[in-house]
Design a protein around this nucleic acid. Sequence first.
DNA 1: GACCAGGCACATC
DNA 2: GATGTGCATGGT
Length: 227
Amino acid sequence: MRSSEPILCQKKNRLKASQLLRVYAALRKAYGHQKWWPGDTPFEVMVGAILTQNTAWTNVEKAILNLKKAKKLSFAALRRISKEKLAQLIRPAGYFNIKADRLKCFMAFLDRECGGDLSELKRSTMPVLRDKLLAVKGVGPETADSILVYALGKTSFVIDAYTQRIFSRHGLVKGHETYHRWREIFTWALPKSLDLYNDFHAQIVRTGKEHCRKVPRCEGCPLQRFF
DNA sequence: GACCAGGCACATC
DNA sequence: GATGTGCATGGT
């Protein structure tokens, strides 16, 4: 079923704020606040953000558990561990050689930027901090935005595969857009609120996992009335 | 056995 | 700027 009012202003490909907030409200009502990201500490969130690149979260959980069991889930430990040993610990997350290198690069970044002190890193302001993250090898826009929102408490909207799939599959955003453009569309439409940015993306992932994978299972989707 | 999952860097055109 | 490719495990 389609909503009577289009969510998208077709001329400018801009989402309408009122409709987008209704989408969020429907998800929030269905699922409740998601209290994201799954992780005990901001540091764990950062590690998880790198490990989950193109990987099912269940596999990331196994890798994080390995790191915890080996007492390597800390800045100091990951700074010291060899790349080879790290790769073996994170093996279940896939791409383990690539991700071991990316984690080491990220630890080196934390070292030179704040000595591993995340409270100091949080003092950096946007958009400078985002640019710094994007300059780290292995940190692309989605990983950077995830770290910004869920580990550092900055209002930076995260676009991921689920966001693009849900909103383009139903014609809410037309054509192929770059990550930058997707982020602009949401940022323009939404009020700048950390809690909204945090929870909206979490709701999108929840919906995507349950109803909008590549083979959609639309039954029971809270967004059916919008689509 | 094929397909998929919360990307990214790099090469090539 | 757009497109193609390699990276790899574990669940369905």
